[in-house]
């Protein structure tokens, strides 16, 4: 899971067009390099498009915004096929974009 911080989003915003282009290319290269392990990946739209539905009350409650308002938001995820956590960690270390990556087994 890729996690963006406010700081990261701001830096990306402030970049010039060429710099942004380079950043996106680095991400593209990362996906290409690890294509044999990546089975699926998704980029999520920015958090201002988020809507949350809470189902733990008497009625479903719909609110504007992400489920936790915070400085860090999940911005996408990739499914990888690896032998163990160490291999996943190696992949995560080479991730060239947002500053936080959370790793979790999936079934």
């Amino acid at each position: 899971m890729f996690v963006e911080t406010e700081e990261f989003a701001r830096r990306l915003e402030e970049m010039g067009e060429l710099e942004q282009q380079a950043a996106y290319e680095a991400v593209g290269r990362w996906f290409a390099e690890h294509a044999d392990k990546i089975t699926h990946h998704t980029h999520l739209a920015p958090v201002h498009t988020a809507t949350t539905v809470r189902l733990d009350g008497a009625e479903p409650m719909i609110t504007d915004g992400p489920f936790v308002e915070g400085k860090e938001v999940v911005s996408g995820f990739a499914e990888v096929e690896v032998a163990d956590l160490d291999e996943a960690l190696r992949l995560a270390r080479s991730w060239p974009a947002c500053p936080v990556v959370e790793i979790r087994p999936a079934s």
Partner: peptide, 10 residues
């Protein structure tokens, strides 16, 4: 502005 953006993008 924010609401209009959300309508379009979400």
């Amino acid at each position: 502005t924010r609401a209009k953006r959300k309508i379009g993008e979400a």
